[in-house]
């Protein structure tokens, strides 16, 4: 059996969203700019993951910043840092804390998809020569990075990993769970470049000891992104083969 994590996520769940229901509707976000900086992960890979997840070989760190130009709650930008891992045999990214520059958007994303977002200054500035990003929390820069030397590719070349978001769910009592959020993407433009992180404060992302050890790639896409209904969740303390729960879905009419 491959390695599994050792982290007790219930110990850090107090700031995670509390969902009263797992019922939600899709949300389409048109014309979003999506930056991903992909690094190999330094640090104790098992200590960052719960027992339900395997570290990928090698484990990775995924910085994602999404800038939405318009929505029912207006424009917003949110950033996440995830640990690349495996739920059973499937590639996933574990998210335990992220940031959003809009309180209204953060509220929607927390309440409907369990994304553990807090409000902070989040910037994404794409240009022809590079795309830069930064996240500032209470005046402290907790992340800064960029995609350098963008080259055009196609959306078909890009593969995003689904998110497992740390959340609390009120069912039979309050449970700490990981909600799978796997948006659909329709690509309009895609570029690939080199990833460069100039600041990363692991504690601010609730990933103590994590570091970005080796850059793999960076991509910047323009996408129509649809946040889906919740279909799966993971019980973080179970073993990987029994941790996945499939949620009931509405029957087609």
């Amino acid at each position: 059996m491959p390695l599994t994590g050792t982290r007790d996520l219930s110990e850090i769940a107090d700031t995670a969203p509390l969902l009263a229901s797992l019922e939600t509707e899709e949300w389409e976000l048109k014309g979003a700019q999506h930056l991903q900086l992909h690094y190999e992960l330094g640090g104790d890979r098992e200590a960052l993951l719960p027992p339900a997840l395997h570290p990928s070989i090698p484990p990775t760190l995924l910085v994602n910043v999404t800038q939405v130009p318009d929505s029912e709650v207006g424009a917003f930008t949110f950033a996440t840092v995830r640990v690349g891992c495996r739920a059973g045999a499937r590639p996933r990214g574990l998210l335990v804390r992220g940031y959003c520059d809009s309180a209204a958007a953060a509220s929607v994303l927390r309440e409907r998809w369990g994304l553990p977002l807090e409000v902070a200054d989040v910037e994404l500035d794409p240009s022809y020569a590079r795309a830069t990003t930064s996240v500032t929390v209470d005046g402290t820069c907790v992340l800064a990075g960029e995609l350098v030397d963008p080259q055009p590719i196609t959306g078909a070349d890009v593969q995003y990993m689904a998110t497992l978001a740390l959340a609390r769910v009120a069912r039979d009592g309050e449970e700490t769970l990981l909600l799978q959020v796997d948006p659909d993407y329709t690509f309009d433009r895609a570029q690939r470049g080199r990833a460069r992180l100039t600041a990363f404060e692991a504690e601010a992302w609730n990933l103590p000891g994590a570091s970005a050890s080796h850059p793999i790639s960076a991509s910047l896409t323009t996408v129509d992104m649809t946040l889906p209904r919740l279909r799966y969740l993971i019980h973080p303390d179970k073993d990987p083969l029994s941790a996945v729960e499939r949620l009931p879905q509405p029957q087609p009419a």
Partner: peptide
């Protein structure tokens, strides 16, 4: 298959045609 999926496929990490 389970073991093979623990590795990081090139396509999962590095977008390339």
């Amino acid at each position: 298959n389970y073991l093979s999926e623990q590795t990081l496929a090139t396509r999962q990490a590095y977008p390339t045609p």
